[in-house]
Design a protein around this nucleic acid. Structure first.
Length: 631
RNA sequence: GCCACCGUAGCUCAGUCGGUAGAGCAGCUCACUCGUAAUGAGCAGGUCGUCGGUUCGAGUCCGACCGGUGGCUCCA
């Protein structure tokens, strides 16, 4: 093993500790806001160490990039073959050895020429160097602002030299060998473009110490238990039969149907109050409808193939509801006095998602949007938009989903997949941004996240595995009214073009319920719980009384069951707990005597005996209020 | 669609060297009649994802396909 002095000497021909300190200090600015600086450096350095180990295991491997990510890091390689479990174990072991060598990380600035020379066998690095040389891209291939010309720096530890902007730990010994783990391999396209070759991405994780690593692994285990696919099965909420029914096609079991129905009722009430009119439309329509809307040419690939009735008659499963609602709008001549018109429908749509993408309830091929389309005059747009945002916020908050992210999706200027003129897009985007000024939640503006007909405001929530899902969405659309030639007659007796808002507070019932399952860990509030109350008779002689109490509650629209199984009381309680039923009513001799029930909450709290009427009134009240509270 | 891994009872999983499939839970039956998270005994339950190949013989080895999981790309 080399001494530090020897490494220092070897690392560069002109080792300059002062310059190095400067560069390292400068590199600190690359730590993203909100990312723990220590962990960032540990993970970034661990990525280099892993790359060294991989190069030793696969001599001649090509290296791409290796940044820290949430909870860990990865490095992308082009390898002669796919790594096996043994390879990964070897790499992890070797990483631990390198760490124990306490090799120092050295940095120096190099010229473009020297960088090209250093990485002459590394085509991906050369590509990055060219980007740096032109001053347009940083070493991760991200575009840089005009005024920012990057330095080219290389970091070295032990035998491994990498084009890298840093920052890193001082020496490998600052990483704990028992706090790192090689996690898994995945494919990833070079620079995220599917036209490029697919590289092998190796994910790893690194923490400050062993305890933190263990806590992280524990957290992953816990997350799996909360996974809506797991809970959806355990709690009989939904099912998917890929072989018989099809991938991404959801079967709502009775429990799931209760949850969905309650959510739908909630939203319908809110919508009626806000002047929405329910409509119903078919699941299929002629191709012509989607040609007019613009779906057909742009999104043909993500629709199920057409049903051909005969040569001139083809039908498509609808991927969206809007064209149908537009056709309803067109049934009459509309006056400016009629607007806004708001058509609402829980409309089921079908989209042929890529096979690698369907997942549980969150990414499916058939789903029901809580859709509505608002047709309004331009002067009404802002108020309508805000009213929709407020409805969405109300829906989220009343379900405890406060941890959302707001995203304004605008066009990707380099893509041609959008319909409509530039100024119309600009107009729509401004309308959204203006309206948002009045709210206190933060939002980000992201290119390429728009709908094909207009920009949108999305409410994005994480699942238990940290993946983001778009739930509620509000979209401003000047394009479809034009394509369908929608008009209303203004006070000047002339036809005018209405503006449309597409909106879905839940997004889709499938995805929303999937995410809700995870957020609530399957423990639904009383108003949503598939079974609200279970009667637990202590012995067989108490069954009859339990039934009579159940009948009384049932008559008050409370969803109630009697556990008449031959199990002991403790087993019945356990079963009810595992089904996350909010209320367990234990009835024995004492309760029968006093027309009472002994109330146990899902939380484990024992409220003792109370008159049936008292319990009934309390539950009815909690359900009517649609509160998250158990008692 | 691409890369990797995976597919055995309703669920979670075991199955050695290729010799003809097993446990726990759930279910059913019986006994027990119990006071706040698992009573006991018995019974039943499988075309080992599908198709093909190798072999005297395949859950096990090989191939194709279908599907799932994690990523990537995509996402109206």
């Amino acid at each position: 093993m080399l001494s530090h002095a020897e490494e220092d000497a070897m690392s560069t021909n002109h080792y300059d500790p002062e310059r190095e300190a400067e560069l390292k200090a400068e590199a600190e600015k690359y730590i993203p806001p909100g990312y723990d600086p220590d962990l960032y450096k540990i993970r970034h350095s661990a990525a280099h160490i892993m790359a060294q180990a991989v190069m030793e295991r696969f001599p001649g491997a090509r290296i791409a990039i290796g940044p820290p990510v949430k909870d860990g890091f990865y490095y992308d390689f082009e390898l002669p073959r796919s790594p096996t479990e043994e390879d990964l174990a070897w790499i992890e072991q070797r990483m631990k050895e390198i760490i124990k060598g306490k090799h120092r990380f050295h940095v120096r600035e190099v010229s473009v020429e020297e960088a090209r020379e250093l990485f002459e066998d590394q085509p991906y690095k050369l590509e990055l160097i060219e980007g740096l040389a032109q001053g347009q891209y940083d070493e991760y291939g991200n575009k840089l602002p005009e005024d920012q010309r990057p330095k080219i720096t290389v970091y070295q530890h032990d035998t491994f030299v990498d084009l890298c902007r840093g920052p890193h730990v001082e020496h490998t010994g600052q990483i704990k060998a028992n706090a790192i783990k090689v996690m898994r391999v995945a494919g990833a396209y070079w620079r995220g473009d599917e036209k490029n070759p697919m590289l092998t991405r190796i994910y790893g994780t690194a923490w400050r110490n062993r305890v933190e690593l263990e806590q992280y692994l524990k957290r992953l285990e816990e997350a799996k238990k909360r996974d809506h696919r797991r809970l959806g099965k355990d709690l009989a909420i939904f099912a998917i039969e890929p072989q018989m029914v099809g991938p991404g096609l959801v079967l709502w079991q009775p429990n799931g149907a209760v949850i969905r129905d309650q959510l739908e009722r909630f939203l319908k009430e809110e919508q009626i109050r806000r002047g929405y009119q329910p409509v119903y439309t078919p699941h299929i329509a002629k191709v012509d409808l989607f040609k007019t809307s613009g779906h057909y040419p742009y999104y043909k690939d993500s629709m199920f193939p057409p049903m051909v009735v005969d040569e001139n008659e083809e039908y498509l499963l609808k991927p969206m509801n809007c064209p149908f609602h537009i056709m309803i709008y067109k049934q009459h001549l509309r006056s400016y006095r009629d607007l806004p018109i708001r058509f609402a429908e829980f409309g089921t749509v079908y989209r042929f998602e890529q096979s690698g993408e369907v997942s549980g309830m969150t990414r499916v091929r058939g789903f029901t949007q809580d859709d509505a389309h608002l047709f309004c005059r331009p002067d009404q747009l802002e108020d309508e938009f805000k009213s929709v945002v407020e409805l969405t916020l109300k829906v989220f908050r009343s379900l405890g989903l406060t941890d959302f992210r707001a995203r304004v999706g605008v066009r990707d200027p380099e893509s041609d997949k959008y319909v409509g003129s530039d100024d119309v897009w600009e107009q729509a985007t401004q309308a959204i941004l203006n309206a948002l000024n009045d709210y206190d939640f933060d939002y980000t503006v992201e290119e390429g996240e728009a709908a094909f007909y207009g920009p949108k405001l999305d409410f994005v929530v994480n699942d238990v595995l940290g993946r983001e899902w778009q739930l509620g969405t509000v979209q401003v659309d000047y394009n479809l009214p034009q394509r369908f030639d929608l008009t209303y007659i203004g006070d000047d007796n002339q036809p005018h073009r209405p503006v449309m808002i597409h909106r879905a507070p839940f997004g889709s019932m499938e995805r929303f319920v999937g995410i809700l399952i995870e957020h609530l860990n399957g423990a639904f509030p009383p108003w949503l719980a598939p079974v609200q109350v279970v009667l637990i008779p202590i012995a067989d002689r108490h069954v009859e009384y339990a039934r009579s109490v159940a009948a009384r509650l049932f008559a008050q629209d409370i969803r109630v069951k009697v556990d008449e199984s031959a199990s002991r009381m403790n087993a019945k309680i356990r079963a009810a707990q595992m089904q996350k039923i909010p209320y367990m009513l234990i009835v024995g001799d004492k309760e029968i005597e006093h027309e009472a029930v002994a109330v146990r909450l899902r939380s484990g709290e024992d409220l003792g005996a109370m008159p049936v009427g008292e319990f009934e009134a309390k539950v009815r009240q909690l359900v009517a209020e649609r509160t998250m509270d158990l008692w």
